[in-house]
């Protein structure tokens, strides 16, 4: 079986600064993986390269057998990719349901663009409300997102990304700033998403969270791939420990 996502020696430079340097790894279908590394390691940049915010300088990104080289960002959703953002990037002036319906956008046809969404409860609205209900967020459908608490917005971002029905879901620090109860809620949500067959790739600093959720970790440092393996193995790996704690931590 081929990997769902395959990165082959991709590189990215911003001016003279190489932020991603010859990184290759595969993500297998149906797995839950974490992308970790110290601040500035290039984790978010890697997400931006996969989702097409910037073009890659070198290498290839292949999702489900399709090379992303010539596919612009706004068409990548149609090939099974969706993501959330490190800082909440919900549309502040849209309601919760409308934000979720934006997530469905890539699945709509050109003619579907002109079908009224808000006048009666069509299948898009019903589906968005169902997704919110499944995530335990059904109490806020009509509310403008800017007025909602942080922890709720964080989960709405995940649900919005899910509304695209992705094969691969990229989540950029979904647990950042959540309290333990909210983190547990998020973990349950992500496990149920994974159970539906969606492959997860998560940037996360909370190693406890990563160990509970992910079967695999990919470690980046200064734009290079440092380690790929199980969370338990990562904790024992000399290079990973050096990157996180400094080379004289054993003393």
């Amino acid at each position: 079986m081929t990997a769902l996502l395959s990165l082959q020696s991709i590189s990215k430079r911003f001016g003279g600064l190489t932020v991603i340097d010859d990184v290759s790894f595969n993500i297998e279908r149906g797995t839950r993986s974490a992308l970790i590394g110290p601040n500035g390691a290039g984790k978010t940049t890697l997400f931006n390269l996969i989702s097409g915010v910037y073009p890659i300088d070198h290498g290839s990104i292949v999702l489900d057998g399709r090379d992303f080289a010539d596919i612009p960002a706004h068409r990548r959703g149609g090939y099974g990719l969706s993501r959330s953002f490190q800082n909440i990037r919900l549309m502040p002036h849209l309601s919760t349901v409308e934000n979720i319906m934006l997530g469905q956008h890539a699945r709509s046809s050109t003619i579907g663009m002109l079908a009224p969404l808000g006048l009666w409860r069509n299948r898009w609205v019903r589906e968005a409300e169902q997704l919110l209900a499944d995530a335990g967020l059904s109490t806020f459908p009509g509310q403008v997102v800017a007025d909602l608490p942080y922890g709720i917005q964080k989960r709405i971002e995940v649900v919005r990304a899910l509304a695209a029905r992705p094969k691969l879901l990229l989540l950029d620090e979904p647990a950042a700033g959540l309290n333990p109860a909210e983190t547990d809620e998020l973990l349950k949500l992500l496990e149920s998403i994974s159970a539906q067959g969606v492959t997860l790739l998560i940037v996360e600093h909370d190693m406890h969270f990563v160990s509970r959720l992910c079967q695999q970790v990919v470690v980046l440092n200064f734009g290079r791939l440092l380690f790929q393996g199980t969370p338990a193995a990562a904790r024992r790996d000399r290079a990973v420990l050096d990157a996180y704690l400094g080379s004289d931590h054993a003393a």
């Binding site: 990037r89 502040p92 409308e98 934006l102 663009m113």
Partner: peptide, 21 residues
């Protein structure tokens, strides 16, 4: 319509709107 939703999304954050198709 979905087109109207797209317009309002572009108003709020065009980069994110683009990433959602």
């Amino acid at each position: 319509t979905r087109f109207g939703l797209a317009m309002r999304s572009v108003h709020d954050d065009e980069n994110v709107a683009s990433l959602f198709g």
